[in-house]
Simulated scan of single mutants.
Amino acid sequence: MKKLLILLSTAWLATTAHAADPLPSWNEGASKQAILQFVEKVTQEGSPDFVPLPQRIATFDNDGTLWSEQPAYFQLFFAIDRVKALAPQHPEWKTKEPFASILKGDMKGLMASGEKGLVTLVMATHAGMTTEEFEKSVTDWMASAKHPKTGKPYTAMVYQPMLELMSYLRAKGFKTFIVSGGGIEFMRPWTEKTYGIPPEQVVGSSGGLKYEVRDGKPVIVKLPSLVLNDDKDGKPVGIQRHIGRRPIAAFGNSDGDLQMLQWTMAGSGPRFALYVHHTDAEREWAYDRKSPIGKLDKGLDEAKAKGWTVVDMKNDWQQIYPKQ
């Protein structure tokens, strides 16, 4: 009887401990402990590192940090589908890059157009619509589109460990923001349902907008101009414009996030910076210094030099995507 009670007690304690774990998809190790220790010290009243609620700001990159980004950014796949849908209205696209490459199915030709070509593509396929029309086009696409490699819906390719991390931070009084190079109007329609982050807490690359009255109804129209490229040094600018507070924690996965992490860590008081390092070629992708998408080179060196947390996806995460 005594042995049975001990076994039941041990099982109960193990179950309770697992239930109490705010990051169950994270393997025990340095990365998980660094997160837990930081959050505990800044939220514990009486701690010398205690941070008041209004200052508990955490910013997250999106592509490669909250969901996958290979073999191309998901917004690019959306833009490609938009080109195909709009092509009958634009016969000139048959000979004009980067549209011609898309219509021929030439991804290498598309990527060869570089950042300038991709910006041209996004501006041409996103502009002219009202924000409500664009939101509907994004929502409809998200509901039906599938990733070309995995066959999964794009919103099923979010990272379960990062969903847990954001929930944990919010439970501890943090306000979580997305700060991404992706388009702000592209992300806002689905981030609340997918991440629990409302549209007013999304910071992204922003195009021009214009107020108009169409058919007697006031609308906001998207313009073919870039107001803010929320990447690299644009990220701290976007944070200042949209949030107005320096984060105390920042999470990224590429050199495009480096300035956001630097800006965060340059503040006074306790700070936390984390890079997601893609090391799992079997369950996701493995890439860093030489990748054309999500390159992590300078950031990896700076993280090592400054003692930032670097998540080894293969070893630190028990699972990648949520279970279906």
Rank of each mutant, 00 (worst) to 15 (best):
L226Y: 00
L226P: 03
V227M: 07
L228W: 09
L228S: 06
L228D: 03
D230G: 11
D230P: 09
D230R: 08
D231R: 12
D231S: 09
K232R: 11
K232T: 07
D233W: 10
K235Y: 08
K235R: 09
P236D: 06
P236G: 07
V237H: 02
I239A: 04
I239P: 03
Q240K: 02
Q240I: 01
R241N: 11
R241K: 15
R241H: 09
I243F: 08
I243Q: 02
I243P: 02
G244E: 01
R245G: 05
R246P: 06
R246S: 03
R246E: 02
I248R: 07
I248T: 05
A249M: 09
A249L: 09
A250C: 07
A250V: 03
F251V: 02
G252E: 00
N253L: 05
N253S: 04
N253V: 02
S254L: 05
S254K: 06
G256E: 01
G256Y: 09
G256A: 05
G256R: 03
D257W: 04
D257K: 05
Q259C: 11
Q259L: 13
Q259M: 14
M260N: 08
M260I: 00
L261M: 01
L261P: 04
Q262W: 12
W263S: 08
W263T: 01
W263Q: 01
W263N: 04
W263H: 15
T264A: 13
T264H: 12
M265I: 02
A266M: 00
A266W: 04
G267H: 14
S268P: 14
S268W: 15
G269A: 15
P270F: 15
R271D: 10
F272S: 06
F272T: 03
A273Q: 04
Y275P: 06
H277M: 10
H277T: 03
H278Y: 15
H278L: 14
H278A: 14
T279W: 14
D280Q: 07
A281Q: 07
A281Y: 11
E282Q: 09
E282I: 02
E282H: 12
E284K: 12
W285P: 01
W285C: 03
A286C: 06
Y287H: 09
D288M: 11
D288K: 10
D288R: 11
R289E: 13
K290Q: 12
K290C: 07
S291H: 11
P292K: 00
P292A: 00
G294K: 05
K295R: 14
K295D: 06
L296S: 01
L296A: 06
D297E: 07
D297Q: 09
D297F: 10
K298L: 11
K298T: 04
K298S: 12
K298N: 10
G299R: 05
L300F: 11
D301P: 04
E302S: 07
E302R: 12
E302F: 12
E302Q: 14
A303Y: 08
K304Q: 13
K304V: 05
K304I: 05
A305W: 09
A305R: 12
A305I: 01
K306C: 10
K306P: 13
G307T: 05
W308R: 04
W308L: 06
T309Y: 10
T309W: 11
T309N: 07
V311P: 11
M313R: 09
M313V: 13
K314L: 14
K314F: 13
K314T: 01
D316W: 03
D316P: 01
W317H: 08
W317S: 07
Q318V: 03
Q318N: 10
I320W: 15
I320M: 14
I320S: 14
I320N: 14
I320P: 15
Y321C: 13
Y321L: 13
